[in-house]
Each structure stands twice: as structure tokens, then as C-alpha cells.
Amino acid sequence: MSHCIDSFRSQIIERVYIMLITNKAKLSPLFVTVSLLIYTPVAYSTERFPVSLDLPISDAVDALNNQCTTFYADTQSDHSFEISDHHQSAEFSHTWPDGSKTLFISHSEMDSNDQGQILSFHAPASMFSNDLIDQQRELKLVEKHYIDEQHPSGMAWLPSPIDAHHGVLVIASEENGELLFKHSDASGKITTTQTFVPNDVANITDVWAFEKDQQLWLIVHDMNHGRGAAYQANIDELFTSDHQLDLTALHFNNHYQSPDETGCNKSLGQNAQVVRDSNNDWYVVHTYSDGLFCGINSGDIKIKAYSINFDSELFNINQDPVPSVVKTLPYQSSFKGSGADGAAGFRISSQGKLTLILGEQFASLSGFNWRSALVECR
């Protein structure tokens, strides 16, 4: 992407220069300077896998309840309340060339012979301002994609660095012990699937993806046992020109431990996010609903950040059970049943804003329409 931005910047400079030569009587140096400032992309747009925040971690987390916007996913009646079936996590694609995004929701179906689902929804460009949701919209269901895993958990999105119309949704297959790489395009439909079995991770509850030193890091996490495995890949070797991944480019880096109890007797629950703050320090941020019963959208929402280090080129999470940052987001009636244990997750906007997605666990009936409420807070 960076060479495309450099090319774009060069074209702008060249056009302004030509205008100056051919029409210099009508242009001033001030006009040229302003033009260059307007068209020079911000630093965050050069990140292929956004990870950088515009604030120190404490300020970024503290800002998460400054503004919250509710929106809806057009789910269906089979996503309504059942004891063991519920929405697991939410993940947005990158911005497609037409300005839209795709929202993915993982949904568990635990009855005998049921299959888990990956739901995709079209999020039009008009609902975003500066890459933040600022309109209450209902997102149209694009596809209900069935998978063998009954309990799909956390997800991560990998935008293709060679084709802006393509990306890969990585899904933690908790019961089957594998990662599912689901290829998708700007239509929001899943095209092909690749699988990867990590090294010695019993229950895969989450997957975190980020770029560091031009390497893609893929972290496979098990919140039930407080441990995981870190992988690295050269991005140019991982993504091939035929819209497939060369999974042999993924190299095991190390195993790690995480604090045993970070809330609800679990370790860093699903839907967490690895971030680098404006001080160039690394953290993993996670959230959960701090109600009477764990795993249910009730009570206040806890947000915690734990520091990460890369000493000796290894991925490690600080073992101190006391987090670097902790914040309580009081549950509000405007959340409409949305919480940290439903269709939830974090994302980083193109301007470096940390945003929190809270979601319902089940579809609810509005008139004659089944839908699931979500809230973006930032």
C-alpha cells in the first residue's frame, strides 16, 4: 500500500507543478503549499494492518464512552434466544474501494448436528464519518455462511496488501482446534476457505493480528488455560497473487502465558485487540460484562489493558494480574441489550481511534423484523 500512496503523492505534486508552470500568473506559492498539505495522507493510512493509536493507552481507553452510536444487524429468527446458542464476536473489514465495509458476526449453534455460522452484513459508506460510525442504520444481511465448528469464537481481519477488493477473515475454531481463513471480497460473501492447525493450543478462543517491523504477527490465544502461541509471517510471502494465502509462510515463534484471572475467572477473554499506543508501547485490550453471571450481557462493562513486550524477539504478556489500565463503562439502557459478551470486539479507525463494539447475544423482534443491536463507543 505504501508504494501506492507514494505514487499518489507524486501525482499530486506533479499536477501542482504543471499548474504552476502553465498558469503561474493565477497561482501563488501559498496555493501550492496548501494543496500539498491537503493531499498528503496521514501516517495511519500507511498501516496495512492498523494497530497504532493516536493517544496513550490510558487516554484511548478512557475516551471509549465519549460517544456511542447504536446500529443494527439484520439477523434472523434462528438467531433468537436459545440457551446455548448466541452471537460470539464482531469484526469489520477494511474500507472497500467504494467506501463501504463488511461486518462479520460469528454465531454459535450448539444443538446436536447444528453448524456454527459466520454472518456478513453490508455497512454502507454513508454511515461512517472519519471511519467512525455516526448514523443509526440497519445493516443488510449478505450471507449466512455455515461452518463445521459449532462454537466459532474470536475473529481477526487481514486486508489484502495487493488487492483492495479482497481480504481474509481469520476465525478461532474453538472446539476443532484450528484457525479458519475465510477469503472474502467487497460483496461480503465468503469465497474460499483455508485451515491451519496451531502448535499445542488446546482451545482456541481468540486470534489477534497485527503488523510489527513489516512482519505480520498472528497470536492464537486460549483464555481457558491462560496461554497461547505466537506466529510470524512475511506479509509479501503470505499473500499470493491468486487470492490465496501461502500458509507455509507462517512460522511458529513462541508459546506464552497470560495472567490467569483477568475477569470472570478467565484469562483475556475473546474479542481482545493488540494495540500500540502513541508512546510506542504495546498492549492487549480486552473487555467483559461484569454482571452476576459470567458470559451474559448484564452489569457494567469492564475494559482492561495489559502490557506486551517483545524481549528477545518473543511475544509475551505481562504476568502481573493488575492491568496497566482498567475502566468501567456503566451499562446504559441506550445499549439496547448490547454488551461485551455478544457480538463484540475492538477496532482501530484509520485515524488511530480505539473503538469498542458492544453487541447483543441474540436477535430480538422489532415489529415483524428480527435484528441484533450493536453499539460503537469511542
Rank of each mutant, 00 (worst) to 15 (best):
E178N: 14
D78S: 01
D98A: 06
K101P: 07
A344V: 12
D246P: 00
F104I: 05
G345L: 05
A25V: 06
H255M: 08
D6S: 08
H286L: 04
H3R: 11
G116Y: 00
V325K: 08
I21L: 13
G342V: 06
C68K: 14
V275Q: 02
P323Y: 05
S2M: 11
L179C: 07
D78W: 02
F92R: 05
P198M: 06
Q232K: 12
V34K: 15
F8Q: 02
E47H: 07
K182E: 15
C294R: 04
T95K: 13
S108P: 05
S350C: 07
E211M: 08
E14Q: 14
L292R: 08
G359P: 06
I204Q: 01
F196I: 02
D300Y: 06
F196L: 14
H286W: 10
L356T: 02
L268Y: 07
D59I: 11
F315H: 04
S312R: 00
H225N: 12
V322E: 12
I133W: 06
S106F: 04
P41V: 04
V375F: 05
F335Y: 15
H86C: 10
Q136E: 14
N203V: 13
I235V: 11
H107L: 11
I171A: 03
H166T: 11
K101H: 13
E360N: 15
W208T: 04
